[in-house]
């Protein structure tokens, strides 16, 4: 993927027509996403699947880039400003690439009163990054979550699909090193 392309079709003196833009958009996506979009377009309310499509795109690419969002705009025939407006509204959507391991420290109420702030601080110290940042080697992204629904096991940290419960600051180095082994 050419990152210089701010938009899927082209960025300058474009003589391409609508069809080419849509072709270029199609090239970005795997078959399952294209199929899904095609199906959506037959739906009674095609635009209503925008968030579902963005989820699928993020699942595939790890994040939503301007290119992929524009491609969604073309394929679903939704204004690009709206697509990016929607994507940037929801915190679940990542607009920047993330590390291999995404560490989400829950700062929900139960986790907070059980000491999650200290856990977050420890992760931040150990990894040398602040929340929302990714380590230089691209291994870790540190994020804050607002409740993962395992409150009774607070403080809770989610890494990938795994939920670590009753995390204390001293467990942090171990958790990090066990990730590195994966």
């Amino acid at each position: 993927m050419n990152n210089n392309l701010k938009n899927v079709c082209c960025s300058g003196d474009c003589s391409k027509n609508e069809k080419d833009c849509i072709e270029a958009s199609r090239d970005l996506f795997p078959e399952n996403i294209l199929k899904f979009i095609e199906q959506c377009l037959k739906d009674e309310h095609p635009n209503s699947q925008l968030i579902t499509v963005l989820h699928k795109v993020q699942d595939h690419f790890g994040y939503l880039s301007p290119q992929t969002m524009d491609a969604v705009a073309y394929l679903m025939q939704i204004p690009a400003a709206k697509v990016s407006g929607v994507a940037s509204f929801y915190h679940y959507f990542r607009l920047k690439p993330c590390g291999k391991h995404v560490i989400s420290v829950c700062l929900g109420t139960a986790c907070y009163v059980n000491g999650a702030e200290a856990v977050l601080k420890k992760f931040s110290e150990e990894l040398g990054i602040k929340e929302g940042e990714t380590t230089h080697d691209g291994m870790f992204t540190l994020e804050i979550a607002r409740c993962l629904g395992a409150c009774a096991l607070a403080p809770v940290v989610k890494i990938g699909d795994d939920i670590h419960s009753q995390v204390t600051p001293d467990k942090v180095p171990f958790i990090i090193s066990s990730c590195l082994k994966k």
Binding site: N7, C9, G12, C14
Partner: peptide, 10 residues
């Protein structure tokens, strides 16, 4: 006239 990049949708 020249077509300009649409960079957006109708």
């Amino acid at each position: 006239y020249h077509p300009r990049p649409r960079r957006g949708i109708k």
